[in-house]
């Protein structure tokens, strides 16, 4: 930290890319300034000036200060500081990692009445969004599935009243037993016009079908209640998965199903679409 090492032979002053310190020292000498003059002006220590002139920038308090000191020094010596600082940047030691402050982890901290921290709201949001998308997809798929039976039911309920039984059908089919045989032969998924026939025909002979009017098939445990027109509880219990029940009484029936998506309800052999009566899996409906 003395002036001594400055006496190292200056190497080829003609070549411009000499060290920053050498350029500064040459300029200082050519202006006839002593180190003490510089110390007086820049308020740096002699050691710091020597470090700059000998390119020992790691002896300075840090890169920010090294650049600042060189800039001030160059200005004092009436040099353009920018090229020197640019050159200096390549010569500076790699800045040591500035993080000696213990990075407090959350476990290591204690708080007095600490505020609520939002953990990872992002992940949470993503999970919720993914859940919603899957849920929406499921509902959409479910709604797509029973499109055909839905048609049957609606026509059935609409056309069941005796008055609306198609006249030509009654005229052309004299015996109820014949009609019944026809039902068996007409496939369920035929055209809409034809579906009216099977749905409306049994209504003309409810007594013949008797008890088996309603059939329940349960794929997953489900609570089920069926009350008929006379107020009789035909069933009011939890059916286990795989159970199948047939029941009947006097129409109309008031039906409640606890787990509608996993329950199949058949009215006189026709599947009833429960989805349209369902609200959050519970279906409440009245069938005639």
């Amino acid at each position: 930290m003395t002036d001594e090492p400055i006496q190292t032979p200056p190497e080829t002053p003609a070549t411009p890319p000499a060290g920053v310190g050498i350029q500064l020292r040459q300029q200082r000498e050519s202006l006839g300034l002593s180190i003490d003059d510089v110390v007086n002006q820049l308020k740096l220590t002699r050691g710091q000036i020597a470090a700059i002139e000998e390119d020992r920038f790691s002896d300075l308090p840090g890169n920010t200060f090294a650049r600042g000191f060189v800039r001030n020094y160059a200005r004092l010596l009436q040099l353009d500081p920018e090229p020197l600082v640019a050159q200096l940047t390549t010569e500076l030691p790699v800045e040591r990692e500035q993080a000696s402050l213990p990075h407090l982890t959350e476990e290591a901290t204690f708080s007095i009445g600490g505020g609520a921290r939002v953990g990872r709201p992002l992940q949470l949001a993503l999970v919720v969004i993914a859940g919603l998308i899957i849920g929406a997809g499921g509902v959409f798929w479910y709604l797509q599935q029973p499109a055909a039976p839905e048609l049957n039911v609606s026509t059935a309920t609409l056309t069941l009243p005796e008055a609306s039984v198609p006249v030509e059908l009654v005229a052309s089919v004299p015996a109820a037993s014949e009609v019944a045989s026809e039902i068996a032969s007409v496939p369920v998924a035929t055209a809409a016009a034809q579906t009216e026939t099977p749905a409306s025909v049994p209504a003309s002979a409810p007594a013949a079908v008797g008890n088996g009017e309603l059939r329940l098939v349960v794929e997953q445990d489900s609570w089920i209640q069926v009350i008929d027109a006379g107020g009789n509880k035909l069933i009011s219990e939890v059916l286990k998965a795989g159970d199948e029940r047939s029941l009947g009484g006097v129409a109309p029936y008031r039906i409640k199903i606890g787990n509608a998506p996993k329950t199949q309800l058949y009215l006189r052999g026709q599947r009833v679409d429960l989805a349209q009566y369902s609200r959050s899996d519970v279906a409440t409906l009245e069938l005639k």
Binding site: K43, L44, T64, R67, F69, R71, N72
Partner: peptide, 9 residues
């Protein structure tokens, strides 16, 4: 102040 002063970049 008699102290070194630098202007930040």
């Amino acid at each position: 102040t008699g102290l070194p002063v630098i202007v930040a970049e």
